[in-house]
């Protein structure tokens, strides 16, 4: 090979191992899943023995009450947790973005929940929610109040898993919001103080607008993540009571292992994938728009 050709090939040669791993580890399973979603496939069969059914799996899912219920639960769960986590996380960041004694200790404590393995989080909360020995009902009893059926009542169960998720994932929003806050131009905030902005007005008029690009991406990341939540809920309620906490990923797992319908499970996964893809595309488009706007502004500044 000529040295010029060699030079041109070098980056691709460095990329090759990663590309190969991507192909085997990501593209192959996705292709397999898409293919499987067109089959009526039982785990006891080889995939070559499964019967092709076209789009029947997709069509039947749209009329499947349990699947729609799961989707609704997932949407409800995701919306509530993401909105709450954003509000609480950003609020905490605004409160702790200051130099007072012990703030670094507080910050570290706040991000601890995120570092615990999801299974452990699920187990921990399941014990805390335990109807008789859990700390919540013990405390309520100590105050002379009625115990709450945390995980055994349909309405309470959804609220309970939402609380656990908020506990675990608010720190994620918090640290990203705090990083965004601390990278804001100090002098602009000082100028705002001199211009007469109260603490609240600084937040509304200066801090939040300037943090917005980071917050939008953070929110979307969290939304994508919340659609895929599984372990914590699996451990805490396993989808029950009834279908009240059966989020999509749990439904998919059950369809594959309990109902032994691999084709249908694959089709569900693809629906979920489409939702996530849409969110990801929104995120990329948003980033592109922000970048393009900044590029235009820079261009104008150079011409000025």
């Amino acid at each position: 090979m000529t040295s010029a050709g060699m030079k041109r090939m070098t980056p691709y040669m460095f990329l090759a191992p990663a590309a190969a791993i991507m192909a085997v580890g990501l593209l192959y399973p996705i292709g397999y899943m898409v293919y499987a979603s067109f089959l009526d496939w039982n785990p006891s069969q080889l995939i070559s023995e499964a019967e092709g059914v076209g789009l029947r799996n997709y069509a039947s899912l749209l009329g499947d009450a349990s699947f729609l219920e799961s989707t609704a639960v997932t949407l409800k769960f995701s919306t509530i947790v993401v909105v709450t986590e954003m509000v609480v996380g950003v609020g905490l960041a605004l409160l702790l973005d200051r130099n007072i004694r012990g703030v670094s200790v507080l910050r570290t404590i706040f991000i601890l929940p995120m570092m615990i393995a999801p299974i452990v989080v699920g187990l921990m909360w399941r014990y805390m929610y335990h109807p008789s020995v859990g700390i919540f009902n013990q405390t309520l009893k100590g105050w002379g109040l009625e115990p709450v059926p945390w995980l055994s009542d349909a309405d309470w169960a959804l609220a309970s898993i939402i609380i656990a998720d908020i506990w675990q994932w608010t720190p994620f929003i918090f640290i990203l919001a705090l990083a965004a806050l601390q990278s804001l131009p100090r002098s602009a905030l000082e100028a705002a103080r001199i211009d007469g902005a109260s603490g609240w007005q600084q937040i509304v008029h200066i801090k939040l607008p300037l943090m917005m690009p980071v917050l939008v991406v953070t929110g979307l990341l969290r939304l994508i993540d919340s659609f895929k939540v599984l372990e914590v809920i699996l451990v805490m309620t396993n989808g029950g009571p009834g279908l009240s906490t059966e989020i999509l990923s749990l439904r998919i797992a059950r369809t594959a292992s309990e109902f032994r319908e691999l084709g249908v499970a694959a089709a569900m996964s693809n629906y979920l994938l489409l939702i996530l893809l849409a969110l990801t595309v929104i995120m990329f488009v948003y980033n592109k728009v922000v970048d393009a706007r900044e590029a235009a502004v820079r261009q104008a500044a150079e011409e000025a």
Partner: peptide, 15 residues
């Protein structure tokens, strides 16, 4: 804000 002052910053500090 209660000192009735206006200030021009080195890096301009525009919003």
């Amino acid at each position: 804000k209660d000192r009735d002052i206006a200030m021009v910053f080195q890096d301009y500090a525009l919003y």
